[in-house]
């Protein structure tokens, strides 16, 4: 299914280097914070969601990631908002639909559209705040130092490192196959046939040195112990531990309150 909401903008990290307060927070705190924000967003009315959106956006700008925020928000939310409005504000028949000459409009539909839009915006902004202020390497060190198994850490670190080399290889393969007569610009049939000719060498090549990679990892006693000691783990301040615990306890309480009311 769709794992990309909009066009890919390259394989560089979304991380924006900086030294803001948020940058310096422990990655785990930020992760728990993100989960709490995401869950809370679902519990709030649109006004509350808008507050979350505005707050996270503000923090993002303060952290120096304003540009990345704006770019991603426009790319994702732009077409999204348009389609939402057309579908819910205009097309779907609701009981308060006002019929103009050739177009109809439903205020209730527009309200629904706004609610969805604000919620997605809040979630997106919260996620952006996390990814722009947290370098994956730091996240991994934080996870490692809290006992996350090395296997999981590897599964996040390794792909991030391999993205750029694989992209480069894909381009080299495209060149090599074109130089052998592969047509990328022809009929859709030709293009569908060209697709495996570009993908299969990439995968085959990648898998052919799998044994070697695995041996190297094992040779480094990669999983000799269930968890690793991290030498330069991200700082974990006492208040952050408490904050995390507080948020994690707050969540089921919030759900309880919501269900009760």
């Amino acid at each position: 299914m769709i794992t990309q909401g909009s066009s890919q903008t390259g394989t560089a990290l979304l991380y924006v280097p900086g030294n803001s307060f948020i940058h310096r927070m422990n990655p785990l705190t930020k992760l728990v914070g993100l989960l709490w924000l995401a869950a809370t967003t679902f519990m709030l009315p649109p006004g509350g969601m808008a507050v979350i959106f505005a707050a996270t956006f503000l923090f993002g700008v303060l952290a120096g990631a304003g540009k990345a925020f704006i770019k991603r928000l426009i790319l994702t939310l732009g077409p999204f908002a348009i389609f939402l409005f057309v579908i819910h504000g205009v097309l779907i028949e609701r009981h308060d639909t006002i019929q103009h000459e050739w177009i109809s409009f439903s205020p209730e539909g527009a309200q629904y559209m706004l609610k969805i839009l604000v919620r997605v915006a809040a979630l997106l902004a919260a996620s952006m705040l996390f990814v722009t202020t947290t370098h994956p390497a730091n996240l991994l060190k934080a996870l490692d130092s809290h006992g996350v198994p090395p296997g999981i850490a590897y599964l996040i670190a390794s792909p991030l490192l391999l993205l750029e080399p694989f992209s480069a290889r894909a381009r080299a393969i495209r060149d090599a196959q074109q130089a052998r007569g592969l047509d990328l610009t022809g009929s859709w049939k030709a293009r569908v046939k060209a697709f495996p000719a570009l993908l299969i060498p990439l995968v085959t090549l990648a898998l052919s040195d799998l044994d070697h990679r695995a041996t190297v990892l094992d040779g480094r006693a990669f999983r000799a112990r269930p968890f690793r000691v991290v030498l330069d783990a991200p700082v974990d301040r006492p208040y952050e531990c408490w904050l995390r615990r507080a948020l994690l306890i707050a969540l089921p309480l919030q759900i309880g309150v919501l269900l009760w009311l």
């Binding site: 080299a172 090599a176 074109q178 052998r180 007569g181 592969l182 047509d183 990328l184 060498p201």
Partner: peptide, 22 residues
């Protein structure tokens, strides 16, 4: 002229043949 048409007139053997193996 697109590269695949040029390839009919000039054939290339690259340094790393693994990249083409399909």
């Amino acid at each position: 002229t697109p590269p695949h048409i040029i390839s009919h007139s000039i054939g290339t053997v690259f340094q790393t043949p693994e990249q083409q193996i399909f």
